[in-house]
Simulated assay, not measured.
Amino acid sequence: MRIVVLDGYTLNPGDNPWDAVAALGELTVHDRTPREAIRERAAGAHMVLTNKTPLDADTIAALPDLAYIGVLATGYDVVDIRAAAARSIPVCNVPGYGTEAVAQHVFAFLLELCRRIARHDASVKVGNWSANKDWCFWETTQIELTGKTMGIVGFGNMGKRVGQIANAFGMKVLAYSPNTRTMPGYEPFSYVSLDELFARSDVVTLHCPLSDATRGMVNRVRLASMKQGAILINTARGPLLDEAAVAAALNDNHLGGLGVDVVAVEPIRPDNPLLTAKNCLITPHMAWATLTARQTLMRVTADNIRAFLAGAPTNVVNAPKA
């Protein structure tokens, strides 16, 4: 079986070998694939693995040998899963590999926004502590998390893990999920409506998928409903935010801080309004990328292929409904 990886560099920039996948077929790995080269590189492949390189309906139709699509991520919106299903091609993702990494990144954002460690480290190193008349100083208001309310939009495995950590910090946790009625209770978390969550939370963190219903969900109206000085964190998908509206809320001090690991267009464009917004932390879509998480992703990718070859594919996102 011929296996082609279209964009493998982020999974293995040199520290996470493809050995487990290479053992399962004739493997070709491309670090990156421009759109115009997708069909040429995937031609003749029985299995195509992709992270962000799109496989649309026309591309899938142009690959007669294709029998399996592996997504090197949890989200699979880069693949036309209906077109694949029409050809009986399973699309298999890797759920849960980055839960711990992303949850910890959320709190890296939150702690930095509340305590501004990097700013004070820099201040000390340019001599401001040495020249200070007192034995301590701070340049920003220092905020404790204990007693604050965190609102979590999307309460799957990722959202629950963030909630557990928030609870350990002594925070109250509000959760919103469209599937609330079918989910068991998770004390001490409270399920509320989306509007109530935004209105009551001191911190809102997004862990929902991108869909027609969620695109631009954090807009001018929703931002206005938030508490003065509330913090917003997005490690899910960039287009969940109306970035111009969010930047405006930061610049007029209604929104107290923002941490984003994702933006609407990636890599970020030089004219993105968040780049010049006040109290905004931006990381380059790296929350998922701990070595431990990437090793798990590689292992499960190989497991998915092995299961497909055995005739019992797992983690199939386009399986026919019973």
Rank of each mutant, 00 (worst) to 15 (best):
V265Y: 08
G127Q: 10
L281V: 11
T59N: 03
G216C: 06
V263A: 09
A131K: 14
T276H: 12
A230K: 00
R237M: 09
A45I: 11
L6Q: 01
A307K: 12
V106S: 01
C208A: 13
H46T: 11
G238A: 01
E266N: 08
L309N: 09
S190H: 14
M226I: 03
G98D: 08
K148R: 14
A168N: 09
H46A: 15
A84H: 06
L194V: 07
G70F: 06
E139S: 14
N304M: 05
T283A: 11
V29C: 04
P320S: 05
G96W: 00
N93E: 00
T33Y: 08
G163K: 08
G96C: 03
I231K: 08
A131W: 06
N253A: 13
A322S: 12
A166Q: 05
P270L: 10
R116V: 11
N315A: 00
L250A: 10
E112D: 11
A319Q: 12
V246N: 11
A22C: 06
G259E: 06
R41S: 04
V78W: 00
R87L: 00
N157F: 02
L24M: 13
A37N: 08
H46C: 08
V124L: 07
R306P: 09
D202C: 05
T74S: 00
N132Y: 12
L63W: 01
A108K: 04
N315M: 00
D303N: 11
A108Y: 06
I38L: 10
R215C: 10
M1P: 10
G185H: 15
R181Q: 12
W288R: 03
C92F: 03
D80G: 01
R116T: 12
T290N: 03
T99W: 02
R269T: 15
V48T: 01
A277L: 11
L274F: 09
T314G: 01
Y68W: 13
R35H: 15
S193N: 08
R200D: 13
I152C: 13
T149G: 11
Y176D: 04
T296P: 02
T33G: 12
A83D: 04
D77I: 00
A118P: 04
T205C: 09
N51K: 10
F189Y: 15
N253F: 11
T99E: 00
L194G: 02
V300T: 12
C92A: 14
K52A: 04
G8Y: 09
F198C: 10
N219K: 06
D195G: 13
G256D: 11
A23F: 11
V21E: 15
L6W: 01
N318E: 09
N179P: 02
G127W: 06
A103E: 00
E112V: 03
R269Y: 01
P267M: 07
D19E: 14
I152E: 14
N315G: 02
N318F: 10
K321S: 13
R222F: 09
G127Y: 04
G75M: 04
W18Y: 10
A248K: 06
A43H: 05
Y176R: 01
V162Y: 00
L206N: 06
A62I: 08
Q295I: 13
T292W: 07
S177E: 00
N304P: 09
Y97M: 01
R82H: 12
A62C: 02
E36S: 14
E243G: 05
P178G: 02
H120G: 10
A319Y: 07
N318W: 05
H285K: 07
N12V: 04
L24E: 07
R220A: 15
G257T: 04
